[in-house]
């Protein structure tokens, strides 16, 4: 198992490399002088000179890439000109908030989605199935940012159950209960779509598995229906559900951008959107590379989970 984890970690190196290439190439599409493009409104003569020196922007494309990559490997993601602080510091400050939001939502969507999918499949064409199917359809059709806004209107403004926005109270807040209270609405709003998708795929994965011969074998052995469904069938269905969870983690992370905007959550997503609007290219570049790298590591964890579940995967 350790060997397999090491192997997967090693295989992540070219992927991480590829990610930096893709991000670099996309950023190289910006027309005009790279220094002016990167600096945008902050293109003072001193800044232009500094950035040309730091990033070797007068060098050819390939050389520029390696200078940039070399800097990143030493932890230097450049400087954000709009915030006037190192990119990596800003990203690290923000990443915790995003991780809290997206992580909570991910756990919610995994548990609720799988449970809903299994119940739906087990009661196919029954009322539970119809109800869940409709709820799922509604969930995947509603824009998460619109849902978030409506939740604010109903639960924060009308009912006053939860705070309107932010991550902690401005004065005297910040404890666990305070953050948890702030977290409820954004986490649910973010989880809804992913829960719908997971429920849908879990349902069809379960239906696929329930027709398999080994389910009939379990029944022929006299195994009870509860164990057939939540044991034999779900375990086999997890083989196709887990990769979906991996992909959904990316979707949750993506959806966090909107939710952070709606709820003024101080995460990476909001930082990125602000940076794009201010044309702070280095901050965008650094944030994207950092988050993508974290996501690659998360997917390795998913692969490892999959290999623990499925002995047919060679470890």
């Amino acid at each position: 198992m350790t060997g397999y984890i090491l192997k997967r970690l090693l295989s992540a190196i070219p992927v991480l490399f590829g990610i930096t290439v893709i991000v670099f190439l996309i950023m190289a599409m910006i027309p005009g002088d790279p220094a002016l493009a990167i600096l945008g409104a902050y293109a003072t003569p001193e800044n232009v000179e500094k950035i040309n020196r730091d990033l070797g922007l007068d060098a050819p494309l390939v050389a520029r890439y390696f200078i940039w990559l070399g800097n990143m490997l030493t932890g230097d993601f450049g400087t954000s000109f709009s915030l006037n602080r190192p990119v990596i510091d800003e990203v690290l400050d923000r990443f915790g908030a995003t991780l809290l939001l997206a992580g909570t939502s991910f756990i919610l969507c995994a548990i609720l989605g799988i449970a809903a999918g299994v119940v739906s499949a087990a009661r196919q064409y029954g009322w539970a199935d119809k109800g869940i199917t409709f709820a799922v359809l509604l969930g995947i059709s509603i824009p998460s940012f619109f849902l978030g806004m409506m939740m604010i209107l109903i639960f924060a403004v009308e009912l006053r159950w939860f705070p309107v926005s932010g991550m902690r109270m401005a004065y005297g807040g910040g404890g666990f209960a305070d953050v948890a209270n702030h977290l409820v609405m954004p986490a649910i709003a973010l989880a809804v779509v992913a829960t719908g998708v997971v429920a849908r795929l879990s349902r069809s994965a379960m239906l696929e598995v329930l027709r398999q011969d080994f389910i009939r074998t379990a029944r022929a052995k006299g195994v009870g229906e509860g164990r057939v469904i939540w044991g034999h069938a779900l375990r086999a269905a997890m083989v196709s559900i887990i990769p979906v969870l991996g992909i959904q983690a990316g979707f949750v992370l993506s959806g966090a951008v909107y939710i952070e905007m709606v709820f003024q959550w101080p995460g990476v997503g909001r930082m990125l959107v602000d940076a794009i609007l201010k044309r702070d290219i280095l901050l965008v570049q650094g944030g994207v590379v950092f988050v993508a790298a974290c996501y690659v590591l998360f997917n390795i964890a998913v692969d490892v989970a999959q290999s623990l579940l499925d002995p047919r995967i060679k470890t």
Binding site: V15, I26, I30, G250, V273, I276, V284, V288, V291
Partner: peptide, 17 residues
């Protein structure tokens, strides 16, 4: 490689560029 990005990062990067 492209799927290794949470898709919005890629979209944001493209829009940024």
């Amino acid at each position: 490689m492209l799927m290794a990005f949470p898709y919005i990062l890629l979209a944001l990067a493209i829009v940024a560029a």
